[in-house]
Design a protein around this nucleic acid. Sequence first.
RNA 1: GCCUUGGUGGUGGAACUGGUAGACACGCAGGACUUAAAAUCCUGUUCGCCGCAACGCGAGUGCGGGUUCGAUUCCCGCCUGAGGCACCA
Length: 927
Amino acid sequence: MEYNFNELEQKWQQFWQQSNAYAVSNESNKPKCYVLDMFPYPSGAGLHVGHPLGYISSDIYARYKRLKGFNVLHPMGYDAFGLPAEQYALEHGVHPAVSTEQNIANFRNQLNKIGFSFDWSREVNTSKPNYYKWTQWIFLQLFNSWFNRSLQKAEPIESLIALFEQAGSTAEGVATTQHLFTAAEWKSYPTATQQQILMDYRLAYCGFGEVNWCEALGTVLANDEVVNGVSERGGHPVEKKKLRQWYLRITEYADRLLQGLQTVDFSEPMKEMQTNWIGKSQGAEITFAIQSTAASAANTTLTVYTTRPDTIFGVDFMVVAPELDLIHQITTEEQASAVNEYIAYVKSRSDRERQAEKRISGCFTGAYALNPFNQQRIPIWISEYVLAGYGTGAIMAVPCGDERDFKFAQHFNIPITNILGSAFNGTEANNTKDARLENSDFLNGIVMRDAMDLVITKLVEMGIGKRKVNFKMRDAAFSRQRYWGEPFPIQWKNGVAVPLPESALPLALPVVESYGPGPDGQGPLANIPEWVAKELETNTMPGYAGSSWYFLRYMDPSNNEAFCSRQASDYWNQVDVYVGGTEHAVGHLLYSRMWTKALFDLGYIGFDEPFKKLVNQGMITGNSRFVYRIHSTNQFVSHGLLDAQGTYQGHALDKIHVDVNMVDGLVLDTTAFVQWKNAEFAGATFILEDGKYVCGSEVEKMSKSKLNTVNPDDLVKKYGADTFRMYEMFLGPVEQSKPWDTKGIEGVHRFLKKLWRLCFDETKGKVWIDAEPTPAELKILHKTIKKIDDDTERFSYNTAVSAFMVCVNELADAKCHKKAILEPLLILLAPYAPHIAEELWQQLGNTSLIIDAQYPVFNPTYVVESSKEYPVSINGKVRTNINIALDASPEEVESIALNNETVQKWLEGKAPKKIIFVKGKMINVVM
RNA sequence: GCCUUGGUGGUGGAACUGGUAGACACGCAGGACUUAAAAUCCUGUUCGCCGCAACGCGAGUGCGGGUUCGAUUCCCGCCUGAGGCACCA
């Protein structure tokens, strides 16, 4: 009987499905365990080999926990709204709902072939009305809430109105905004004014923000769609434009998001990334008087944010972000044209380009700020390295203490004041806080760290400064000028946003004629007369809306009365283990943490951190292929012809991903290329080398947008799901990213065949027997139980697979075919290779399923050793091994070691300086 | 540019708390079985040197330093790959 994996895997998959083997109930006497994957975006490229890495990891864990006696929730679903489906619709005219449905069917089919233990009855799809009804509902809760700063929690907006009615804008717990009013004033305001004010407190609110605007395409572009300042599609110029946008006031939760990190089991780097993203800093806002010859500069001031008020006497210039309106008021006539030119240049650049640029750029405004302590004139510059979105959008530059300021001063020959004394060497900035200040007036001789408070206190007294906590994190932009997303349940009536009543939900996404952009940078919904007539919001929600709460929906997926019953969320509570990639370290994880906190504050759930433990799966990277287009042409240059600067005969090139499937090795199929993407590159011409177009290649994240995906189906067909599962795990540590490579899969497949042969021989048939196991055989088994149990619990699956191999090799060498050994081994293996385990389990005469078996218990008495082969080193270099009883005393060990022939030889008759003996580890003789 | 992370044989990786570097695989080489192939099994495989061989010497975990009886592991500096940087998901 041979190992016919295709047949038996199909058989068991069908059996599990028909018997609802993986359906899980919300009621059980067993302890619960919630094992969750980051659900996939159902890309048209289908599942690629990177997806299952995390899913297999979590599946192994879920199955392991089930064997250990837990009631395990292990669901799967689809994050189905998103840009790619919309682009596909634009290009092919297929409604996103249709293509998404097809993609999902394809994904589910692919997933099923790998043998996951998902409870499919709980599947969610964020683009279905019965799901996004609740996304809209939660949005309304956020819209109807504000953040009480005293209580540090969200409350219904009514409580804010009550506070305003009692005490006006300065009521306790109310954030300070531009609005200042008394209770009486509040009551006197017309409704529209009141609503405008409330908007500045709502957790979901409407404001204005910058987007990537492409005039030629008449649409807003994602950062992803902008390459080197031009649109990826068509290469048109892109610039920043301000549009009305929805936001989530996540900044109010900044402190709680920081504190919450201490209560969860995330890796330190992960916590660090989130902490850095939130970017809490303590400092001061300082307002400077301005001196300028420009008439409009009268009475203007410049407010900067600094974390180092102590360095105020070292300020040699100010830098203002080019976006600030203030610039136009203060710029002198002489500098006006230079300033305008510079602003135009900056407008075409992304934040990232602005920060990454090594070349230093900037422009003097002609205006000066006055140091409040000594009235010294400080020139005001503008430069792209200061971003409008952080702090006040203006900084005071201290070249001797800040690297970027130093370089800027050097570049523009601005004299540098040294306030650090000998701590500043004149060639690089020193950001110390421990130097004693010099050249600093009343601060001279004070340690910088201590000067901070002094300066702030003084500034406060003078009325020109205040202590300020700042966050790098900004409020989360929550609207998109797109079609394929959740419509906002909001109506605009005379400029006032009015929430739809709960009974109007779901507000269904209407069918459109075209997926093209609406007028004035609006989304496609603005093209629908009936929609516009109803004054409904024409933006849609972003991709992360649905994914911010899906883990709750799995608990109670078909509830029509609530997003999730309190009973269900109280039972399943937090996700015990959440498996997913680090690429979601900040975005998704912060948003879902915020939503959880808001829902907790409003009393809808009983916990305020969604994920108890996070396991970061490393990315399986792919090998991308590139073509190089001469900028603004349709001519493509073969990779080998590029010069060292990455240009071609001085022409700038656009580097464009091509589908790896159109490339053989590195050679592009040019015929396929010109027909590709609805013939977007029709008429392309090629500059070839050796008659071929050779592509560039890079290892990067496997993703549809990078066109470098590899599909798992062929491997499953050729080797079986069990082999595929174990191979993905065998590739390396789950957390580590690695480039995909198929070689090596044979080894895992051979292992499974070898395991099979412990039970069945191709010619002889059944070879397993009922005999009593020997101590040696029990030792092999129990060693393996210990190792697999430990490794599985800590997600060290690559070493677990290796331990299985060692075990099977040893059993084969020992010619052990005993049921009493094989059965526990199969249970250990079941989470990893469920099909073969189930089949052999049945063949060994079991009538129940192995997925319901009991995990074997390690018995240490089988593996005790009485002696150890100690490595003996001389001066740290291993020279020999000596077998010594484990219970030997240190003195005995020393004497045995010193009398050893090899040791004697190395000692050359001399006495050793000392002997280091670590019991059970090693002996080191120092001479 | 900033944040995070990785770099170990020809390849993927192992070494969990500072204690025998290279487990387990892939590949490769040789052999057995076979008419032959597949499958399977056995042997060898970090590099260099001496050699019949060695449980013989030397070097060796990206590079350069340091701490230690002992460093892949800890510290400092550098090089380099990957992920993220707010509208890809």
